[in-house]
Computed example of a mutant assay.
Amino acid sequence: MTVRIGVIGTGAIGREHARRINQVLGGARIVALSDVNVASAEAVKAEIAPKATVYDTGEALIASPDVDAVLVTSWGATHEQYVLAAIAAGKPCFCEKPLATTAEGAKRIVDLEVGYGKRLVQVGFMRRYDAGYVALKQVVDSQIGAPIMVHAAHRNPAVPEQYVTPMAIHDTMIHEIDVLRWLLDDDYVSARVLYPRSAALSHAKLRDPQVVILETAKGTLIDVEIFVNCAYGYDIQCEVVGEEGVARLPDPMAIEMRLGARKQNAILTDWKDRFIASYDVELQDFIKAAAEGTASGPSSWDGYVAAITSDACVAAQDADGAAVPITLPTRPSLYK
């Protein structure tokens, strides 16, 4: 079966996913496109999916009998409405993060999917598909004993001037929030935020860097450094300290050189390059499940938990170092 996919939102990530589906992956093709900027959708049609139909609205695309499954890659504030529409139509839906911009919105998605009685939603937490994280999880699960501590860092070379303090959680650390919970098979119970002195490239509306400290239900203590103006490159680090050993996320492969009286290797500067292979694996997983009328991978529940945790972390940014509790509802059996 070839899964007929419609893409809602044809900006950078939507365009890239459309290219991936039509030119790299197997088992699916792009048959429909929609964007509030019609010219953007028409450009993707011309360049990547010449046989696709351009729809005036995302809702019209979802309702089309020619569409089997939906990719939501539009502006974050629109995700909830399109995912809800896809569930109501009974169509598998891949939604880039965030699932919704509020925990309440994510809960509405969870409730509708639970009521439908079958998983239909996969959230775009692509790090679970990264080869390095997959290898790290295998070691954490089987070789180093119970995790005691995690030291992680998320460093960007620079961010736009409109990037402000809460975005360090919602736009940046959201990936650590999901992948560390998956890595440890654990849930968070509290969050604290501490600030060192501000970096020179920070500004009045951005406290940078910051350190988020998460405690889990099993007692693991996690510290995540978020440094979005580190200047030197895009650098993702993760070290898990277990009862019997320590495991580190491998750096991306790079050629080591001895050049100009220095020993050196290049560091990536673009997040898309760091995780480019994981997007292929992620979407192929979605296509495989969609062919069976369902979804796999990160779920609506994972998106909901990430939203609850993010809200707690943002509250902790203004709590002067005090711990903010993270309370989760009972997980529905659909997601167990």
Rank of each mutant, 00 (worst) to 15 (best):
C230S: 12
Q237H: 06
W75S: 13
G260D: 07
E215N: 13
V54T: 10
G145P: 08
V3T: 12
I222H: 03
I169T: 00
S74G: 11
S333N: 12
Q138W: 01
L249I: 09
G6H: 14
A18Y: 06
R258Q: 15
V7E: 05
D141K: 11
S202D: 06
R20A: 09
R127V: 05
P65C: 11
A217T: 12
P98W: 00
G245K: 08
P65E: 14
T309I: 04
L136G: 14
K205E: 13
T165H: 03
P325V: 07
A88W: 11
C95E: 01
I213V: 12
A261S: 13
T101I: 08
V67L: 05
V314Q: 06
L112V: 12
G90E: 04
D111S: 05
P160E: 02
V228E: 02
Y82L: 07
I148G: 14
A217M: 02
Q237K: 14
Q264Y: 06
D223P: 01
D111G: 04
I87N: 04
F125Y: 02
K288G: 15
I5V: 14
V114K: 09
A319G: 14
P50R: 08
I87L: 02
L206T: 10
I8E: 00
Q317I: 06
A49M: 08
A86V: 02
D56T: 15
G145F: 02
E282N: 12
Y188G: 09
M167Q: 05
G260Q: 14
V70P: 01
V7L: 04
I308G: 10
T53R: 15
A199G: 13
G26H: 10
E113A: 01
R20Y: 03
Y304K: 05
V83P: 06
Y195E: 08
R274P: 01
G321H: 02
K91L: 01
A316G: 13
S310Q: 01
I226Y: 04
D111M: 01
A291Q: 10
K97H: 03
R15W: 01
V123M: 06
M167K: 04
L283V: 02
P92D: 03
R127L: 06
K51M: 15
L328I: 08
E104R: 11
A261G: 11
A41I: 13
G321C: 08
V24C: 11
G90Y: 03
R155M: 08
Q317A: 13
I21L: 09
D302V: 07
V241C: 10
E292N: 14
A315H: 11
D66Q: 12
R19E: 08
I48Q: 03
K205H: 15
W301F: 10
T165F: 03
E256H: 07
T216I: 09
A289Y: 08
E176I: 00
D66N: 12
S300R: 01
D186G: 15
V72E: 04
E113P: 03
P98T: 06
I267V: 07
D56E: 15
